[in-house]
Design a protein around this nucleic acid. Sequence first.
DNA 1: AGGTACTGTGGGAGCGCTCCCACAAGTGAT
DNA 2: ATCACTTGTGGGAGCGCTCCCACAGTACCT
Lengths: 351, 351
Amino acid sequence: MAGHGARGRSGGRPTLEEVAARAGVGRGTVSRVINGSPRVSDTTRAAVEAAVAELGYVPNTAARALAANRTDAIALVVPEPETRFFAEPYFSDMLRGVGAELSETEMQLLLIFAGSDRERQRLAQYLAAHRVDGVLLVSVHADDPLPDLLSQLEIPAVISGPRSEAETLPSVDSDNYGGGRSAVEHLLSRGRTLIAHITGRLDVYGAQRRVDGYRDALRDAGHEVRESLVEQGDFTEEGGRRAMTELLARHPDLDAVFAGSDVMAAGARQVLREVGRRIPEDVALVGYDDSAIARHMDPPLTSVRQPIEEMGRRMLDLLLTEIADRRPAVSRGLERRRVVLATELEVRASS
Amino acid sequence: MAGHGARGRSGGRPTLEEVAARAGVGRGTVSRVINGSPRVSDTTRAAVEAAVAELGYVPNTAARALAANRTDAIALVVPEPETRFFAEPYFSDMLRGVGAELSETEMQLLLIFAGSDRERQRLAQYLAAHRVDGVLLVSVHADDPLPDLLSQLEIPAVISGPRSEAETLPSVDSDNYGGGRSAVEHLLSRGRTLIAHITGRLDVYGAQRRVDGYRDALRDAGHEVRESLVEQGDFTEEGGRRAMTELLARHPDLDAVFAGSDVMAAGARQVLREVGRRIPEDVALVGYDDSAIARHMDPPLTSVRQPIEEMGRRMLDLLLTEIADRRPAVSRGLERRRVVLATELEVRASS
DNA sequence: AGGTACTGTGGGAGCGCTCCCACAAGTGAT
DNA sequence: ATCACTTGTGGGAGCGCTCCCACAGTACCT
């Protein structure tokens, strides 16, 4: 900036006070205009808005946060190491949904990873300092202490993927049960008869529900449900390999595999190929998540798609509502605070 | 609000003042202890620390930010739609590096996407409000106005991938030139003679440098450099397909392709397969980034790996330094503010 | 003894907002 | 004319911290 000269004692960014002086009104009035209060006359409002524009006034967030005791920020907390967060497109899609919805507001999104103990420590500090107005929790395991910490600190939170059927936090989830069912029903309709399942980590509620869907689909179709056809994985490629190896050892004659995630399906595919099984001729393969991996696999992988972006959007909705009625909150029923969205099966060459 | 009445002035979180009273010292002394000033006696320090622990005191960030005029937060700004950000592991690895380095400090990381105009608008507001102490810029195109905005607002910033050789911002980059060279030298050493190149967007400096490496490697090996062997892509799969189609039309006899990214290599692979070319027998393929796609491709893709996590770490280092010497800053030479890290070729079955 | 320099400490003065009370002015009933 | 609202407005009192000045105490010179 050329020659600032007098400029009062400031030199920095304009303050509310300066805008008020410029517009010839009081501080309170400017504040009202900035915050969209209706109790301002049209003439005054116009004058203030002009002054704001002329001065290029931007509210000081820190001062506002201090005075109003809110931060206008929410955190997306991911209790996993960064690696896994990005390995699965799940999170990025969700982030997109949240971001889209968030851009309608003045709120800011923080991304916080809490994989290591060190990071969790920092997170606890962070939350204790009330640096966010609310928290979006993603991919939380059944025994995670985080939700309790949150409610203890009275910080509004929404969880994606309830920890159990008894989840107390508002939650958004996809229909894992229905997703599991649809995968199996699809394989049955293709004439497969010996269908194995590689599960995700069973301390993830959604993974359990997929198993339930698998079982019920078989049962409802009049098939016997054999536990030896179910092998636990852990959402990793290596876990998928291990589980597939086990399953083949127990059932060399299996003709289909439903994996609880695309990444595990990729591991399974490797093993199947190593032992000379063709996909889909010998063994049909179905994954879950419909990630980039599914599309790039050879052959392309049939997979269950979740409306993850939509889930992100709904989570944010729920959270903003929580924040808005930040009061005893004992009243409202839980019905509306629990959203479940339908999945869709993307059929490709692997099945 | 239900009858607030007396309000006792406590009820909430403890303040500096309360800690001071508890420890029997003044406010200033507590502040000094909290901020690690050396000018406090050991006895006093211990007393204050005890009081802090007993009360569970956590500093109020908003108050601190207001008084000290800093935010203890930095932003990672990604001027791309979220989609691309996650499609390439580039960003997630970088994020990991930044995160690792950041956990050594008290700073907070914000992730900000500025793909759409709307988002850029919001970002400008955000920066104008000085809500962060510094900015990490990732993947910026040559004509992006963001860096100028940043320097105009006098916000410290570090860029990954300088916009040109004349980059004014401190920067961290991998050796794109060397990476391009190594890919081509590798293909030459495998006996390939007609090597094509699918470039990235040429308004990305790094993509240009890869082309330079490609050209120089051929030239130094005594090969003629034919411009018809270079086709521009745009880092997308579709772009890779298009470029590959062009190249095959011009040079049906080419025996190797160096793609400027794994994603483009994936697109190229599809086209090669469609026209019946075998990889690597007929055409050798090399990508760039060494992403998950490269490992899962069929056949697995040879690719140039950048030390991205390390880059993230170095960027943060640089930024923290910038923030620390937040003064005229005209003095320091530019040498140390420019970091270039070596790449490595990961050889797989595609070449 | 007086000076000069530290070290350690207390507390006033803000930082830029929001909240809320006070109050002027207008409106309409009595 | 009085009273009772309503609408719009100004500005004091903080929010919880950092910064910095003042000052007591101690140490080491002259």
